[in-house]
């Protein structure tokens, strides 16, 4: 029995979704609506007390931490190998996943929460929203929701996130000029991880990420977009987020 608790094919949720699709592993999808605070419901907290997504349940084993789940999926199931066979490329795969997880994705996410998540929920009943915030188990996530709902992001922190993204885009372009995939010569978990953060860059940072300035990054995004596994993952999206992927169609 294999059940994935996830939201949109995006950021952390998208990582295990894409790994499972690339492996060709069938799984039961349990969609949690992040904008409806499903991830903090008492039923879900019984599964993952952190109240965060994604979570994968394999028989009686509960797995969290999206990137570690990707490595689990690659090891536990048959199907194409998504980890390079060379140990140095494996090191590089992990280094770049961490770069996305701790550095690049949080900057993009902060901006995403200010322009998408916050405005999507802000208009609801203030008492209801307060109650929803109160039941969030992790302090860091509680702060994130407060900022999104009451729109208290500082101009400095948003600008700093933008600076990091623009710099990161140049770094990724430079890396992809030297090799076809993030870890080396083959498509790996690092590309699947990064794609889920980066696919919307041509939409959200059009001045920094485009065919003129970052042709290798654009080509890399399109190649991943065209993979059958990516298409199958995208079909699981329910909001407008996933429509931004379609900009990558040639």
């Amino acid at each position: 029995m294999l059940t994935l608790y996830h939201w949109e094919p995006n950021a952390n949720s998208g990582k295990p979704m894409l790994a499972l699709k690339e492996k060709g592993v069938a799984f039961e999808s349990h969609y949690l609506d992040l904008l409806n605070f499903d991830q903090h419901s008492p039923e879900y907290l019984k599964i993952n007390p952190n109240g965060t997504i994604p979570a994968l349940v394999h028989d009686d084993l509960l797995l969290i931490e999206s990137t570690a789940i990707m490595e689990y999926v690659d090891q536990a199931f048959d199907g194409p190998q998504l980890t390079p066979s060379d140990p140095y490329e494996r090191w590089r795969m992990r280094w770049w996943m961490k770069y996305f997880d701790y550095y690049f994705a949080p900057s993009l996410s902060m901006i995403g929460w200010s322009v998408f998540v916050g405005p999507s929920v802000r208009e609801r009943d203030p008492d209801e929203l307060r109650a929803k915030i109160d039941r969030i188990p992790m302090k860091e996530r509680r702060i994130a929701w407060q900022k999104a709902i009451y729109n208290t992001f500082s101009a400095e922190e948003l600008a700093e996130s933008g600076r990091r993204l623009d710099l990161g885009i140049l770094k990724i372009e430079a890396v992809l000029t030297r090799r076809p995939w993030l870890a080396g010569e083959t498509y790996s978990l690092a590309d699947a991880n990064a794609y889920n953060t980066a696919y919307a860059l041509p939409f959200s940072r059009p001045d920094s990420c485009n065919d003129e300035k970052t042709p290798h990054l654009m080509e890399w995004l399109r190649k991943i977009y065209e993979r059958p596994a990516t298409q199958s993952m995208a079909s699981m999206g329910r909001t407008t987020l996933v429509s931004r992927m379609a900009l990558l169609a040639r």
């Binding site: 931490e65 570690a68 689990y72 090891q75």
Partner: peptide, 10 residues
């Protein structure tokens, strides 16, 4: 095993 691998990484 995959489970131990996940435990260490996570």
């Amino acid at each position: 095993g995959a489970e131990a691998h996940w435990r260490i990484l996570a």
